[in-house]
Nucleic acid binder design. Sequence first.
DNA 1: GCCAACGTTGGC
DNA 2: GCCAACGTTGGC
Length: 154
Amino acid sequence: MKYWLMKSEPDSFSIDALAKAKNQTSSWDGVRNYQARNFMRDKMQVGDLAYFYHSSCKNPGVVGTVAIASKPYPDLTQFDKKSKYYDPKSTVDNPRWYMVDVKLVEIFSGIISLKEIKANEGLADMVILQPGNRLSITPITNGQWQVIENLKKL
DNA sequence: GCCAACGTTGGC
DNA sequence: GCCAACGTTGGC
């Protein structure tokens, strides 16, 4: 089993929105970065766990845990001309973008802020902390997962 | 809302 | 296949 960190802007999709979704499950659509896509398409397995991270907001940080709930399948928004994620170069026969479903596991009672993450020595190697890294989906190690498990409050 | 850093695009 | 220009990301 693998561990991940998945970033989303709460203005477009927050953990609260996931909590309100049917079965507390939602597709993780809109990823338009090849590296992030490859993680979803090639590496993620049903049952993997991921931390849900709120980015580009007043208080960025880890807000909860989700589980990967489906195999990868084509991101339908790429075929939808009205979607902001529409990709004219993608075809149904040869889709460029993939997504997985995620299911809510838990929402922390308080956010584990980016500041807190940066201050923790055990998390110094996290991919999202590396200078200039902007990947919306990154793997995290067992050790990093455990450090955050110990910081969370339910 | 600023801006630095990054990924992607497209002309050559 | 290079690389300049552009759009996006995301913390502050």
